[in-house]
Design a protein around this nucleic acid. Sequence first.
RNA 1: GCGGAUGUGGCGAAAUUGGUAGACGCACUAGACUUAGGAUCUAGCGCCGCAAGGCAUGGGGGUUCGAGUCCCUCCAUCCGCACCA
Length: 922
Amino acid sequence: MADYDFQSIEKKWQQYWRENEVYRVQIDSSRPKYYVLDMFPYPSGAGLHVGHPLGYIASDIVSRYKRLKGFNVLHPMGFDSFGLPAEQYAIQTGQHPAITTAQNIKRYKEQLSNLGFSFDWSREVQTSSPDFYRWTQWIFMQLFESWFNQATQKAEPIVSLTKHFEQDGNSSVQAACDEETPGFTAEQWRNFSEAEQQKILLNYRLTYLADTVVNWCPGLGTVLANDEVKDGFSERGGYPVERKKMKQWMMRITAYADRLLEGLETIDWTDSLKEMQRNWIGRSTGCELDFKVQDSEITLTAFTTRVDTIFGVTYITLAPEHELISKLTTADQQEKVSAYVETAVNRSERDRMTDVKTVSGVFTGSYAINPLSGELVPIWVADYVLAGYGTGVVMGVPSSDDRDYRFAQHFDLPIVHVIEETETLDDPTEKKHGTMVNSGFLDGMDSQDAIPAATQRAEELGLGKAKVNFRMRDAVFSRQRYWGEPVPVYFKDDIPHLLPEDELPLELPPVDEYKPTESGEPPLGRASDWKYRDEHSYELTTMPGWAGSSWYHFRYMDSQNDEEFVSEEAQKYWESVDLYIGGTEHATGHLLYSRFWTKFLYDRNYVSVDEPYKKLINQGMIQGQSSIVYRVKGKNEFVSAGLIDNYDVTPIHVDVSLVTNDVLDTERFQQWREDLRYVTFVLEDGKYICGSEVEKMSKRLFNIVNPDDVVEQYGADTLRLYEMFLGPLEQSKPWNTNGIDGVFKFLRKLWRLFHDGSGNFTVSEETPTPEELKILHKTIKKAQEDIESYSFNTTVSSFMICVNELTSLKCKKRTILTNLAIIISPFAPHISEELWHLLGHESSVTSAEFPTYNDEYLVENTHEYPISINGKVRTKLNFAMDASKETIETVALKDETVQKWLDGKSPKRVIVVPKRIVNIVV
RNA sequence: GCGGAUGUGGCGAAAUUGGUAGACGCACUAGACUUAGGAUCUAGCGCCGCAAGGCAUGGGGGUUCGAGUCCCUCCAUCCGCACCA
């Protein structure tokens, strides 16, 4: 073998690892466990791009490192294989999504195996496989059979609730339930019909059916969860989303709002991610106040976080969707109000969001009584009040809330200042806190103290109560789609019933087409003869994409188990994920839902942990470097980037593979697409220069770089090292190969350390010198510390330094090189394995241990001190390590260079910081 | 608007508790070996300056013997949320 032949080395070892199943793990209570997980990919048709492996490489490094450190490492991989793209493709082509999905998975696995990851493929999961979704359905059933006890803050079996109802009705139960659940006694409960009882229980179950306003996406023909909607458009596909009232399966995640918040304190995630979840949950403490409507039986309840400003209320506003509007509207306002409500309600979500500055509203003609001041205030309707938050009723305090202020100014409503000095401000809402004025019994108090005081008074009067509100809503669980888990429910007399457990999985039935039925039912409505016991119709919606990913981290622990979703033994051994690596885009979706399901499974004693992921790292996104060509408008002519100022051009994305260093390969460009065959070019310096743009890597922008191509050219080890060397893991960066040669050179130098000039493997058996030992142990120490703090880019640097130093010492000593091969192996497993093999060992995966460094070799005899005068370094002096401060000071002051800089002046002070610096202050 | 983060050479980036700013790599320059190569090795490489030296971590101010690091303030970029009462 002449030189570093990465292609045959990588192929050889990948095959060896696969055939010998070296990465297979078993429960082994004699060793500590470590669980490293990647967010599993959705197998898209575009295949992997160079951005995908970034996180996988990092997790693989940690896995291999931990394994070398003696841990029993669980490092699995699988596929989140239900999803919209496969179904969209099925709609267009009629091909079953399972076929497309299987093809894509095959491609993904090939691409992944080219990179030498240490996944235990025997534990692979696919969320679309019946063996897997059987348990997703099973967990759904457990949620259906549970309610949330606010008193204990835990989910309990539904039977404990019915028992309670039988004995005491529902008045003494503190349960998470629907707002409009009526009260009943034990006797009433017993007299309810079965159907009535079931209907009531639905108000309590953790998964339940409800009529709610949902995000309906006509373009996708389905409902979407809040986190799947961005700015009024669907996250996938970018179709417009409208509000629609529909009967849907829901998950009562709001029951867990407090637990989800508290749990954040116990896990090691970044502050920004925790903050995102906190904002999403949006807990706010405040007070509900009852405003009686004048000359009416109606009472309007408003939620506020600022009860202290109650005396500043000059009007009340309702959301346009509020159901009492018609009853509150007086005859003379009737026309105006219904016109306003009509337009406001029909306004698309998108409009309402973009247009937040326009103030609009209408007076109902009615008045309400301020519960604390007794004053009469007008009742308005305005679209800045959201039906979905709080009670849909807002008390308007123009002097301390800027929306209320804008509203009052626009409609010329009175403004009453209740905080001292706000009346002098141009915008009174700038001052949020201070001493209360014009506020009756609150006068003179600080606003912070006035909040509890006002709450207390309202409670005494029976006109209000302290209340905690959440921004987070219950999650919609139904999708009007084919390619998802069927909901294991059938309907008998309109009442949902669960399938018996032993009849799971309820598999997806074949359908003739993947579109909704003519009557507008979901695709499953097309399945013929798909009925429970041939008579009861099944639920026709399927589960959302996040269902399977909410619990898959448990399935890996015991993926072949067909008795349970995970055995107690496996779960207790592997516990939970020690390190989870993935993108930040799942902050308020997957990462919240899987925390919710884990807490639920914990409550019901199915697992022993209540947080799924102990430590989470968000790897940055690798962006694409798009290339752009400029077409002259109306012509078949393209202009080089430097000349576009002289033309009227349309920029067009061009495939990056046709471009080298911004220069377009014009011939291949002409062959790229049929319509480009006869185009002409305006060149500069004989070349066509493309523009470039850093954007998300996407098929649509033709900027995808396939890792296979990089592996082909440089090898997997180089790609792995290079992606790590590119910069900190968490940081986003554009992909470029500018520095990849440096990394490749490093591997070649490493190879040459083990070989002589003509490429024959040579190591010497000589004893290493202290200098060589120092280089090695310094590198071991650095690598260990850096890997443990996930600073992989600096680890690579220290490997480079180490190899350079050993090369210049011409060190070929076995003991040094053996250790070197091991510490590099987590990053570059193939070359290390080959070298380890050449050194006479079997596989490093099973036989090697990460070396420990020895401080003795790192000890220095002397230390070089920078000597600074007034903070500026002027010279350096060597001192023995154990030199006393006095000695250092004395010697330094006598030094010739120091004398020169002191220029006859005597020093005021000398600061000697051991092993750091000597600073002389003049 | 609110919340989070970031800002260091031509470029990607390093820098334990405040203690030699720019490690490592790319690019670049010069040289060596070579029947030219996108190979390898050696040296140089923040800016100004022949040098001595001076100036440099987004701008301004502060604390300190000493600040990339701590405090205040302003600016720029990125991300998340956004009429949440």
